[in-house]
Design a protein around this nucleic acid. Structure first.
Length: 886
RNA sequence: GCGCGCUUAGCUCAGUUGGUUAGAGCACUUGCUUGACAGGCAAGGGGUCACUGGUUCGAGUCCAGUAGCGCGCACCA
């Protein structure tokens, strides 16, 4: 029978088999009409264009653990999957394939293009959801949603129209963050700032009607084409008498005023600032204050245009028309130099905004956009967190969230894309119509723009449950329980869900936000294709299985939510761990000749009581850790219990019984092994769903009285029984283990390999004697001793033997002829010295009055005890040294 | 500039409310063809817990400061 189980665990087939089983049986769908308490998570919807990366793997492993854990604990769980239409990303992907075909979206036209996007979505949109299945995620696929599906589209329209009617939406012509490559506005948080080396050009602007000039400094000389003023600080003596005079813009010859504005820093640059209201946000504000004209000089593709120029201003710079912004900059600087307007070029560092998606440099650009007024929405969203109705874990994110929300600006929600939710606004001449359906009558034209993708994902926790319809799901599963995500997305998404959740549902969308770190490479670098340091989770799943990948990631999670450095070592460790679990199962099943009943026998011996106690402790600690979102600690605790306690100790000890002739003992031990293994599988199932399912079924074939459930997922979390937890037994075992290690240690140091040694124990009290008797069999087998003798008192000193002292127990290993005495004396002297030093330290500590009087009695007693123990140990060892030396 | 985080063994990291003896995995040394597992077993070496000062009987742990690294926000042209 045992031969059926291979030596090495081979995950790939098994994982596919079990996922299919789970999904075919719709096991991940919640129960209908259940009176169990619901536990809900909505997945952070991955981009439909996306492929599973390590960040997803971590994020979803955590969610899966929560779901499976709660399911085992008897909750009616729902983990709702879905994907995000990812406006820019998806549009770019399809545009790229069109380019390969030699066409463009403009040539196709809007409707045709959208057809192609949908086609693309049908074909490839399932990639990432397939990949989530390979990870083992217990997602309810019957409820899968997509941000562009009918229901969610309706929700977004309702959202906009409602906010509009409430006066929380407005349209404005302002400077936005414009990405010339993506051809759309993006929101503030989609702009990344990176400090770059640049130049500061100092340009002389001649004063009109008199000699002299004013020098301005700029990092963007090409924007001078759009200058409509030069500003100075009103207190700046250098320029005071020039305020109100006109300057002549070099090359362009436009006359622009010198104005005064508090914004200008006298100390910086030359103290005079060129003002380009159409291309810089500060300048825009100065322009507002002084009612300056705005001259736009760029096309949406960031090429120079003179559309808004006076005819007279064009001739001097005509050759720049149509040039890219950076080409134009180069040429313009040359021209300024030729004409003698360039005063100086200085090296300079400043932060330039980049598009988070395509890394193009963002252009502040004047355009008409739709905005959400965030003031009241943000206030509510702050309040609900401050009141503790939503908790961030770890807590430090609370402050960061609130700080960000307090400074929140109005949210630009329109995007100049085709792929997305079309803005439900229609225009007819000066008329504007906002509504969920198109207005009646002729001549209406719908706004060509679409919404920011986050405008729809803000509704995700309730739109996926059916909102705006009052569905049963919505009533049952909203508010959701926990949101799990990386900190990089708090601002994009979490904050917006809270705002919209509070506004539309009047209830927080989740009570806990668990924020985890980002997955990085071994050097701590972000994984990115351009660095070539990405580890593809699917490759790892192919190689070592999803369980191992999950376990590696989870066991790296820290309490503070640090970023995770994933190394190949860690993956190997987890792979080895699955193999260990596999093999301990092999061991247990190999040693069953017939079916056994799942029950704890009553003739437990010391080691049995110990492993049962350790198992009970594990039930308790793992549950507590999971309840506190301490995923890493929970994983590490299980690792230690399984590998350390169960495999390294109990399995080895159990061999005595399993290979013995005593049928009763044999059966007792088989039952203990089954009992502990079966329960441990359920503890481990949330972390490693596949291997635990497989083994659980292997056990089911051979064990009577296991759960009737058809999957371990549908069984239940082990019940913690504190009567089976025995701390006295745990401490006894810990002493016996120390003794065994000490014997092994002496043997190794003495170079003794034989099993034919004898150990003579001197037990100074009855309890110790009993303990050693209880452990006699396994002390012999694990320490490899052929004989053990226990005496209360030493009648005569053992000769030519090695000595060990563990706690109050001393023992002798006669080594006549096996080893030279000098070596043993050496070894003991070394130990003696170490003890002497420690005793010295303790003496000093205990004679310190302030310690004995101020420290709690417990701490003092502990140290006294320790000193006493060491002193005794030293006595024995010193005596031994003396004896041997004689 | 402001804020946050990190700095513990050669490497990657744990370390709960301060309790005196700082742990793990990998790597390293030594020994095991042990009937679960060499993806394994046993034993061992290896750390003035970044630095300085403070609080305390006692600090890896608390406080202040310094340095280095990382991140976020804001940017003065």
């Amino acid at each position: 029978m045992a031969k059926e189980i291979p030596k090495v665990y081979n995950p790939s087939e098994l994982e596919q088999k079990w996922y299919k089983f789970w999904e075919d049986n719709k096991m991940f769908s919640p129960e209908e009409n259940s009176d169990k308490e619901p536990f809900t998570i909505v997945i952070p919807p991955p981009n439909v264009t996306g492929n599973l990366h390590m960040g997803h793997a971590l994020d979803n492993s955590i969610q899966d653990i929560l779901i499976r854990y709660k399911k085992l604990r008897g909750f009616n769980t729902l983990w709702l999957p879905g994907t995000d239409h990812a406006g820019i990303a998806t549009q770019n992907v399809v545009a790229k394939t069109l380019r390969k075909e030699g066409t463009t979206k403009e040539q196709l036209g809007r409707d045709e293009f959208l057809k192609r996007v949908w086609q693309w979505k049908e074909e490839y949109g399932g990639n990432i959801t397939r990949q989530l299945r390979r990870l083992g995620c217990a997602l309810d696929w019957t409820r899968e949603r997509f941000t562009m599906d009918e229901g969610l589209s309706k929700a977004v329209t309702r959202e906009f129209v409602t906010l509009y009617n409430e006066g929380l939406i407005y349209r404005g012509k302002r400077l936005v963050n414009w990405c010339p490559k993506c051809g759309t506005a993006i929101s503030d948080i989609e702009v990344e700032h990176e400090t770059k080396k640049g130049k500061l050009w100092h340009i002389n602007y001649p004063i009109d009607g008199q000699d002299g000039y004013v020098t301005v400094a700029t990092t963007r000389p090409e924007t001078m084409l759009g200058d409509t003023a030069v500003a100075v600080n009103p207190k700046d003596k250098r320029y005071k008498k020039l305020i109100g005079k006109m300057l002549v813009l070099p090359l362009v010859n436009r006359k622009i005023p010198i104005i005064k504005d508090e914004f200008v820093d006298k100390e910086f640059g030359t103290g005079a600032v060129k003002v380009t209201p159409a291309h810089d946000s500060n300048d825009f504000e100065i322009g507002e204050r002084h009612e300056l004209p705005r001259v736009n000089i760029l096309t949406p593709q960031a090429k120079i245009t003179f559309e808004e120029f006076e005819e007279a201003d064009k001739p001097g710079v005509k050759e720049l028309e149509g040039l890219d912004r950076y080409k134009a900059r180069e040429r313009l600087v040359e021209m300024l130099e030729e004409k003698g307007f360039l005063e100086e070029i200085e090296d300079y560092e400043n932060a330039v905004g980049e598009c988070y998606r395509c890394k193009s440099i963002i252009e502040p650009y004047l355009s008409n956009q739709w905005y959400v007024k965030t003031g009241d929405l943000a206030r509510e969203a702050i309040k609900v967190v401050e009141e503790g109705k939503i908790k961030y874990v770890p807590d430090r994110w609370t402050k960061i969230y609130i700080n960000w929300m307090v400074n929140l600006k109005d949210w630009c929600v329109s995007r100049q894309l085709w792929w997305g939710h079309r803005i439900p606004v229609w225009y007819r001449g000066e008329e504007i119509y906002v509504g969920e359906v198109a207005p009646k009558g002729d001549g209406w034209e719908q706004d060509p723009d679409v919404f920011d993708t986050w405008f729809s994902s803000a509704l995700w926790p309730f739109s996926t449950l059916g909102w705006p319809e009052q569905t049963k799901d919505l009533k049952t599963f909203y508010p959701t329980s926990v949101l799990v995500t990386g900190y990089d997305i708090i601002t994009f998404w979490v904050s917006r869900m809270i705002m919209m959740g509070m506004h539309f549902m009047k209830q927080e969308p989740f009570h806990t936000v668990f924020i985890h770190g980002l997955v990085r490479d071994a050097q701590g670098k972000k994984m990115s294709k351009s660095f070539g340091n990405v580890i593809d989770p699917l490759e790892i799943v192919d190689k070592v299985g999803a369980d191992a990948l999950r376990f590696a990631l989870i066991s790296l999670i820290t309490g503070q939510g640090q970023d995770i450095k994933l190394t190949p070592d860690k993956i190997t460790e987890a792979r080895n761990f699955s193999n260990k679990i596999w093999n301990v199962t092999r061991f247990v099943l190999m040693n069953l000749e017939k079916k056994v009943k799942l029950s704890l026998p009553d003739n437990l011996e010391l080691a049995d009581q110990w492993i049962v106690s350790r198992y009970q402790t594990s039930i308790d600690t793992v549950a507590k850790m999971l309840d506190n979102y301490e995923f890493g600690s929970a994983a590490r605790a299980l690792y230690e219990f399984i590998w350390g306690d169960l495999c390294d100790w109990y399995v080895e000890i159990s061999k005595n019984d399993l290979y013995s002739e005593d049928a009763k003992k044999k059966e007792k031990t088989q039952k203990v092994l089954i009992y502990v293994l079966e329960g441990t599988l359920r503890l481990l199932h949330p972390f490693m769903p596949f291997i635990t399912e497989e083994i659980w079924h292997l056990l089911k074939d051979r064990v009577e009285g296991m759960s009737e459930a058809k999957s371990i997922f549908l069984s239940q979390w082990p019940v913690f029984d504190d009567k089976l937890q025995n701390l006295g037994v745990e401490s006894d075992m810990s002493l016996l283990k120390d003794i065994i290690v000490k014997i092994r240690n002496i043997k190794a140091e003495m170079g003794v390999q034989t099993k034919d040694i004898e150990v003579l124990f001197v037990a100074s009290n009855k309890n110790e004697g009993k303990m050693i008797v209880a452990g006699e069999d396994f002390i012999k087998s694990l320490a490899k001793a052929s004989k053990i003798e226990i005496v209360e008192l030493l009648k005569k000193k053992p000769e030519q033997s090695a000595t060990g002292v563990v706690g109050d127990v001393q023992f002798f290993i006669p080594l006549k002829g096996l080893v030279d005495i000098e070596k043993e004396v050496e070894r003991l002297k070394k130990e003696d010295e170490n003890i002497a030093q420690e005793i010295k330290r303790l003496k000093a500590l205990l004679s310190n009055k302030s310690f004995t009087s101020k420290a709690p009695a417990e701490a003092v007693a502990k140290q006294r005890m320790r000193k006493k123990e060491l002193a005794e140990k030293k006595k024995i060892i010193s005596a031994r040294i003396k004896d041997l030396a004689d």
